[in-house]
Design a protein around this nucleic acid. Structure first.
Lengths: 337, 337
DNA sequence: GGTCAAAATAATAGCGCTACGATTTTTAAC
DNA sequence: GTTAAAAATCGTAGCGCTATTATTTTGACC
């Protein structure tokens, strides 16, 4: 390296140890070092230890940015969820990261705060990283998002919902059926005057689908069912507030998720409404506290981990022809309903 | 582009529209397009719209990988937290992502599952992306991690704790003081026989610091204080289980976080222990349910958003000399203790 | 030892972009 | 109109790595 070149590297803030340095130090070519790093079994036992020693000695850290450019594709997977504050998604991202990192893929997260415009911006930014795949939540996207994704060669996975026409690949379950399952449970228990308490249904289209399924099934069975909704995010406070809005004769409420249900439980306790005798309560999510609260919460377990594993599989085994993967959900009957 | 070149690009899966294509299309040089993208005000009003039109027409998506290589530094910030399932960290990541994305930075998350070895692996991978900054949780790292980070020119922020000697920059608060504050609250309320219920204290060093501060302050005041700990992650079930382990005469428990406290609340309710008369309960975190549960939970609010904002500031305004930023916490007295 | 195929290694040519310095155009001042 | 300074634009030379092709080495077999 000439003095000028060195000066330039310093100027650009790039004094890092390069693969070339490792190559020189171990007396092999840069190609061999690269090969060693990507397929260690492909280099002979003679030079492998020499390269390993040089890497160790020089403290070489590979530059994925350069690698990604040369290999025309980075080892990141971009995951876009509505919110990380929501336990479903933080759990999914967590499980996904675990599965992907096992295969040398890194996770770039973005959250849309339930805004489709924000989602489009994030997809645009994600594509700029030439990611190995893009994972989105749900199937409700702007036309711009859809166009961007249809044009690209990057694998796309939509998760948590099952669209009729996936952009590329989808993993999830039909939320309407979840709502219907809960309704059937209510009917079996003899609850004939019920309500659905939904938080943020305008934005949370999955919760809205559950609400729709629930309401339809209840009404088809000739029951009285009322839909309460609150624009605020799901929280115990929202749950408590929505309880105010239901009629006094309502026997059971299905909540858009367990947090809302917990709020209802607390509020009922404050008002001395016995659960489930005076009011039955059910949630969605089977969050940590659902099994331990008082009374234990009847809910639906969505299998976030199964979703994450299936998404990871989709990304890792691209050859499969299947475009749509249905994951399980299970109604967990406990004492609250 | 010759036929051979085109074939090569196709072979490598890189048929994407490049900046050069945009330049040709708008009759300017690639440099001008690059400049327009980075500093739109630096190009004349004559060519700007032509470039914009070409970008739009061709559907050009910039390649940050190439950009990052050329500019010797990518626009990603790598954030490493113990777990995304933990509400503190998912909230911090969420707030951080919001603050950083406003400034065109993207967030690469990794989670260590409370393993320092895993953290080192993640730091290594993170450095490979030549990130704009690396954000770590806490100050407990392997020597390897520390060496890697001390050698690099990349800004490093340790958050949620205040190390004596930050690697580079730190944002957080002293958890021992949090424990002491809670102890003083207990003392003021006249609880003289108390316990600290800690989940996963071996790995969660912050909770362990709170426990230490709490125990010391209680004992310095001449009170009886017992430390219960459970290796399982914080959950309502863990809280309920730990309640079994305390003596019958314990008057108050401080929990390592609100989830554990909630478990204690549930278990107490099951056993008809009146709270706070028979047993006072306090948590840490001021999670959503803390204000709404029965009785409302006395807890400590750690200001996760303030941490995130300060971290973002550290990253964005590098010129500051300050290395250590203390964020606030507040004891929120409610009915449970 | 010589031949040939297979395995291991090396050389080459970019990936798409940005920093830098060089060049051209515009503006300002006289 | 000239000139200098400033602004706008362009051309070049890589950033550090990998895919591909070319070359060398090894090993198997006669």
């Amino acid at each position: 390296m000439t003095e000028v070149e060195k000066a330039q590297r310093v100027r650009r803030g790039m004094e890092r140890v390069t693969m070339m340095d490792v190559a020189r130090h171990s007396g092999v070519s840069a190609s061999s070092v690269s090969l060693f790093l990507r397929k260690p079994e492909a280099v002979s036992a003679k030079i492998a230890p020499r390269i390993a020693a040089a890497i160790e000695k020089l403290g070489y850290v590979p530059n994925y940015v350069a690698g990604g450019l040369a290999a025309a594709g980075s080892r990141v997977v971009s995951v876009i969820v509505p919110s990380l504050r929501n336990a479903f998604f933080s759990e999914t991202v967590s499980a996904l990261e675990k599965n992907l990192s096992r295969n040398g893929l890194q996770t770039l997260v973005g959250h849309t705060e339930y805004s489709l415009e924000q989602e489009e911006r994030l997809v645009r930014a994600a594509l700029s990283w030439a990611p190995a795949a893009i994972v989105l939540t749900g199937n409700d996207h702007t036309d711009g998002t859809r166009n961007l994704l249809l044009k690209t060669a990057t694998p796309v996975v939509e998760m948590w919902e099952l669209p009729d026409a996936p952009i590329d690949c989808a993993v999830g379950f039909p939320h309407e059926e979840v709502g219907r399952a809960m309704a059937r449970h209510f009917i079996a228990r003899g609850y004939e005057n019920v309500a659905f308490l939904g938080a943020r249904l305008d934005e949370d289209t999955r919760a809205a689908s559950r609400a729709r399924g629930f309401m339809e099934e209840m009404r088809e069975a000739g029951c009285k069912a009322q839909l309460i909704s609150d624009p605020a995010p799901a929280s115990t406070a929202t749950g408590a507030r929505m309880l105010d809005a239901i009629g006094n004769d309502v026997r059971a409420v299905a909540c858009s998720n367990d947090i809302v249900a917990l709020g209802v439980l607390f509020e009922a306790q404050k008002r001395d409404l016995t659960i489930p005798d005076r009011l039955a309560v059910a949630g969605f999510g089977d969050l940590d506290f659902a099994a331990n609260c008082v009374p234990p919460l009847t809910t639906i377990r969505p299998q976030a981990e199964q979703i994450a594993e299936t998404v990871a599989n989709c990304i890792l085994n691209r050859e499969s022809e299947q475009r749509s993967y249905r994951t399980d959900f299970a109604l967990i009957p406990r004492r609250s309903a």
